[in-house]
Amino acid sequence: MDAYTFRTAEQESIAIAKKTLLVPPILVDLVGNALTAMDGVKFTSLDACPSCGGQVTGHDLRPKRFAVILENGKERAIRVFVKRFYCRQCGSLCYADAPFYPDTRLASPVVDLCLLLSQRMPFNRVAEHLRALGIVVDRGTVRNYASRDFGTIPATELFGLPLPLSLLNLAISTLGREGGPVMGAEALAACGLPPADRAAPRGRGFPEERDQRYN
């Protein structure tokens, strides 16, 4: 960068974070490409009502924020679409199978990453590491997730950072697509639906309204 090239304040903060935290560019690209590939993906399958097991019929398709990333120094919301169903037996509205934990406003791979990092560092440092990776999650939301019990998160170590397998598998599944669409079922298989013992977080967490306000 020469003397006549200027960075915005946002770009400068990202550059400083990357330099300070020594996040490898290949890891930033891996995570960013995985999350970007999810934009517009549709989740439309549900076998039965999760409340009573009754037969369901399609109701509508709702957008849901999967993640917020940094792109060219600006925040960009990655949204997916989740189908809602109406139960013919109990009359409740329920959502299609999708990679989200109950009462969370970000997708499970992002939540998993927040939890793994929070086991190693303070919440403000977690937010800084996430930003260096190109993911925007505020400190309060990280604290919210860390206060809850989501069970054991399968993970591996990559470039000195813990990476959830849900995010790594998602990244691997999107490699070599050359712009091809990602199918909801394929994304679910990569992220992994939460097992029964992880489906309902336990512990005294902050109310959902205190979670980062992503719709």
Rank of each mutant, 00 (worst) to 15 (best):
T8Y: 01
T8H: 01
T8S: 12
E10M: 10
E10F: 03
Q11I: 00
E12T: 13
S13P: 05
S13C: 13
I14A: 04
A15M: 15
I16H: 11
I16R: 15
A17V: 00
A17H: 01
A17L: 12
A17F: 02
A17P: 00
A17R: 04
K18Y: 13
K18Q: 15
K19H: 08
K19E: 15
K19F: 14
K19D: 11
K19I: 11
K19T: 14
K19A: 15
T20W: 06
T20N: 13
T20D: 10
T20G: 13
L21R: 01
L21V: 03
L21A: 03
L22G: 08
L22V: 11
P24Y: 00
P24T: 00
P24A: 00
P24C: 00
P24I: 00
P25W: 08
P25N: 09
P25F: 09
P25Q: 11
I26C: 02
I26V: 02
I26F: 01
L27W: 07
L27D: 10
L27E: 11
V28E: 15
V28F: 09
V28H: 14
D29Q: 12
D29K: 11
D29R: 14
L30S: 15
L30E: 14
V31F: 03
G32E: 15
N33T: 04
A34N: 06
A34W: 07
A34K: 03
A34I: 08
A34V: 06
L35T: 05
T36R: 07
A37E: 15
A37Q: 11
D39R: 10
D39F: 10
G40M: 01
G40W: 03
G40V: 02
V41R: 01
V41F: 02
K42A: 11
F43M: 04
F43E: 06
T44H: 12
T44W: 10
T44I: 14
S45F: 06
L46R: 14
L46Q: 10
D47N: 11
D47R: 15
D47L: 13
A48T: 03
A48N: 01
P50R: 13
P50L: 09
P50Y: 14
P50I: 10
P50A: 10
P50S: 11
P50N: 14
P50G: 13
S51P: 06
S51H: 13
S51N: 12
S51I: 07
S51E: 06
C52L: 10
C52G: 04
G53N: 09
G54A: 03
G54T: 03
Q55M: 00
V56S: 05
T57F: 09
G58R: 02
G58N: 03
G58Q: 02
H59D: 00
H59Y: 05
H59Q: 06
D60Q: 07
D60I: 04
L61E: 09
R62H: 01
R62M: 08
